[in-house]
């Protein structure tokens, strides 16, 4: 492989990796605080894509405002879901909270997918991206919509990192992630923090859907593949670990790009592209369940 092709693939992997990281970050924040995997995360992502489309098509908003509206819409949806369905998990209202959380979010995924399928049909929608055209850096040519979406993803991630580090609410999220009991003793309102974390996680999924929707397509099932990638990413980085989600996203982006290029039989390589990450997921959970950056804890 020539030098320029190598750089091009690496850049492609970086762009895809930033998408993965953005989607996975919300999943990881939710897991950190609530210790549940949100199996409806891909559908939050999908709803974000639709809100973005509607904001542009029906309200005539500019793309950047569309992304903001999608994120805000998902804050509301996420908050409602947390308040109505997730709250029983940590208020001892259900028998077996682990299984309840898994099944209820999976049920929510069925509901949202088929709701959007009923409302908008299976046809792919293609809203305008943030930026059109191509970007040329020397011999490198990258499509502008992807690059712009990746740049926006990086900005969003940076904003979230600052919020988590600098604001009181962000510190509460991190405190509850590290030690729920201790945080509660020190005066953190765990219920409000859980609501916040779920809303923030949902907003990140919605923003990701709004940014990536125009690059690929907005359909009711657009969230299924990205969310499976996000599972791989959070497991690889360590469930609940913020930095792990970011590093995991970038690693998976590179692995997919280069594993596909390096296998000679191209059609088979492409067909198995989505399976590499899953094999990584299984391997990590079996060998090192805390992932690359997660803390060791009992997995019960």
């Amino acid at each position: 492989m020539s030098g320029i092709a190598l750089v091009e693939q690496a850049l492609n992997g970086l762009v895809i990796g930033s998408f993965y990281a953005l989607t996975a970050l919300g999943l990881s924040i939710i897991f950190g605080v609530l210790k549940i995997v949100n199996f409806a995360h891909g559908e939050f992502y999908m709803i974000g894509g639709y809100i973005y489309y509607l904001a542009l098509a029906a309200l005539g908003l500019p793309p950047v405002a569309g992304v903001v509206v999608a994120a805000l819409g998902l804050v509301v949806l996420g908050g409602l879901v947390e308040w109505s369905l997730i709250r029983p998990v940590y208020t001892d209202k259900v028998d077996r909270p682990d299984e309840y959380a898994i099944m209820i979010t999976f049920g929510l995924a069925i509901l949202l997918q088929n709701l959007m399928l009923s409302l908008y049909g299976p046809w792919p929608l293609r809203p305008a991206p943030i930026f059109r055209g191509r970007v040329e850096i020397g011999e490198l040519i990258i499509s502008g919509d992807r690059l712009a979406a990746a740049a926006a993803a990086v900005v969003l991630i940076a904003v979230v990192l600052v919020i988590l580090r600098a604001t009181w609410a962000g510190k509460a999220v991190r405190a509850v992630s590290q030690n729920r009991k201790a945080a509660e003793v020190l005066g953190v309102n765990v219920g409000r923090t859980a609501l916040l974390a779920f809303g923030l996680g949902a907003a990140l999924a919605g923003a990701a859907g709004a940014l990536i929707g125009p690059v690929f397509n907005v359909t009711p099932i657009m969230g299924i593949i990205p969310v499976v990638k996000a599972y791989v990413v959070v497991v690889l980085g360590g469930l609940g670990s913020i930095w792990g989600a970011l590093a995991g996203g970038l690693i998976l982006g590179q692995v997919e790009v280069f594993a596909t290029v390096l296998i000679p039989d191209t059609s088979r390589a492409l067909a198995y592209k989505d399976a590499y990450g899953l094999a990584v997921l299984v391997l990590v959970l079996l060998v090192r369940p805390q992932g690359l950056f997660g803390e060791r804890r009992r997995l019960a």
């Binding site: 469930l239 959970l285 997995l299 019960a300």
Partner: peptide, 11 residues
Amino acid sequence: HGPYLGLTTIA
């Protein structure tokens, strides 16, 4: 257990 098992079986 729980979510970890869910993710493994999904994979």
